[in-house]
Amino acid sequence: MAWNGQNDDCDFSPMKEMIKTSLTELAAELQESIGRIDSEGQCLLNRFEQLGRRFQRVQSVAGSFYLNCYLSPFTERYNELSLSLRHLSVRKIGALIVVQRDDPLADYLHNGIPVGASVSHLLLESLFHPGSPLHDGAVLVQGNAIVSAANVLPLSAMQAHQKMGTRHRAAVGLSERSDAIVLVVSEETGAASFAANGHLYPVLLH
């Protein structure tokens, strides 16, 4: 069936069931911890640390679920985008990918170099390779096409984001001004995330 730009099914049941199961298990363990809090000689700090790590993983799975939901009405190349993020993450290659949705972005993206090619993970990875002349800045994706590369994005001016790296501040900054989804890979940690509505969310790729 041809892609029509509409989100006909944002179900992704296996991922949704994984999130529900994980949250149910965490809720049961939290309830058990509440029962132990009054027991003398019980230190729950290690348990809280373990639960925190597990919750972060659930959050990353949920991030992947919602990212798929957010992007599926606007591009049928989600798998190519996801694969490129995975490869860039493993190699700790910094990346910034803007996926345009309804809002026009011409007023916010500057100095971009036209590309005009179909979205593919190989092309995206080559654009962000440190030896590429276009590796700095953001790639703009509209529908199934890579429109431009090396775009300069507005940075978030919010005080809470001042400690972020430039890529992450740029991702959040554009998402504060538009409905675009901005994908980010950290070159320091390899962690992948996406910005939406002025917030940054982790995604699970492996």
Results as ranks from 00 to 15, higher is better:
residue 102 D to K: 04
residue 59 Q to W: 06
residue 193 S to L: 15
residue 58 V to K: 13
residue 130 P to Q: 04
residue 167 R to Q: 10
residue 200 L to M: 05
residue 75 T to A: 09
residue 59 Q to H: 09
residue 121 H to V: 02
residue 187 E to C: 11
residue 53 R to G: 09
residue 154 P to I: 08
residue 182 V to I: 14
residue 58 V to Q: 06
residue 188 E to H: 12
residue 62 A to W: 10
residue 123 L to K: 04
residue 46 N to S: 15
residue 88 L to I: 12
residue 38 D to P: 01
residue 147 V to H: 01
residue 78 Y to F: 14
residue 26 L to Y: 14
residue 108 Y to E: 01
residue 111 N to D: 07
residue 85 L to T: 06
residue 125 E to Y: 00
residue 157 A to T: 12
residue 58 V to A: 04
residue 162 Q to W: 04
residue 194 F to G: 00
residue 143 G to H: 11
residue 176 E to R: 07
residue 169 R to N: 09
residue 115 V to P: 04
residue 33 S to F: 08
residue 24 T to M: 09
residue 199 H to Q: 09
residue 22 S to F: 15
residue 197 N to C: 15
residue 97 I to P: 02
residue 90 V to H: 15
residue 36 R to S: 11
residue 108 Y to P: 04
residue 197 N to H: 00
residue 139 V to K: 00
residue 29 E to Q: 12
residue 63 G to W: 03
residue 32 E to C: 14
residue 132 S to I: 12
residue 40 E to G: 10
residue 89 S to K: 11
residue 42 Q to M: 13
residue 142 Q to R: 14
residue 40 E to C: 08
residue 185 V to C: 06
residue 144 N to G: 02
residue 42 Q to D: 15
residue 121 H to G: 07
residue 178 S to W: 07
residue 97 I to G: 00
residue 101 R to Y: 03
residue 191 A to T: 06
residue 2 A to S: 08
residue 151 N to F: 02
residue 171 A to H: 00
residue 53 R to E: 08
residue 186 S to C: 03
residue 49 E to D: 14
residue 141 V to P: 02
residue 72 S to K: 03
residue 11 D to T: 08
residue 6 Q to A: 14
residue 56 Q to I: 04
residue 16 K to Y: 09
residue 59 Q to A: 13
residue 72 S to R: 01
residue 73 P to M: 01
residue 193 S to V: 13
residue 116 G to I: 15
residue 164 M to W: 12
residue 148 S to E: 03
residue 163 K to P: 01
residue 183 L to P: 08
residue 43 C to M: 09
residue 23 L to I: 02
residue 58 V to E: 12
residue 122 L to P: 08
residue 115 V to N: 08
residue 28 A to L: 06
residue 149 A to D: 10
residue 46 N to A: 15
residue 89 S to G: 10
residue 203 V to C: 01
residue 11 D to F: 12
residue 69 C to P: 00
residue 131 G to H: 10
residue 168 H to V: 11
residue 56 Q to C: 11
residue 177 R to H: 04
residue 12 F to W: 13
residue 83 L to V: 06
residue 127 L to M: 06
residue 198 G to P: 05
residue 198 G to K: 03
residue 170 A to I: 09
residue 53 R to D: 06
residue 167 R to P: 14
residue 57 R to D: 13
residue 129 H to T: 05
residue 153 L to C: 01
residue 100 Q to V: 05
residue 117 A to Y: 15
residue 181 I to Y: 07
residue 35 G to H: 01
residue 108 Y to A: 06
residue 169 R to P: 03
residue 59 Q to P: 09
residue 123 L to I: 13
residue 23 L to A: 04
residue 8 D to F: 04
residue 105 L to Y: 10
residue 191 A to G: 08
residue 161 H to S: 15
residue 4 N to R: 09
residue 199 H to V: 14
residue 164 M to P: 03
residue 149 A to Y: 06
residue 70 Y to H: 04
residue 90 V to S: 15
residue 111 N to R: 11
residue 63 G to I: 05
residue 90 V to Y: 15
residue 156 S to T: 11
residue 4 N to I: 06
residue 160 A to K: 14
residue 30 L to E: 11
residue 130 P to V: 01
residue 71 L to G: 00
residue 148 S to A: 10
residue 91 R to G: 04
residue 22 S to W: 15
residue 21 T to R: 11
residue 126 S to I: 10
residue 165 G to P: 00
residue 165 G to T: 12
residue 112 G to A: 07
residue 131 G to I: 11
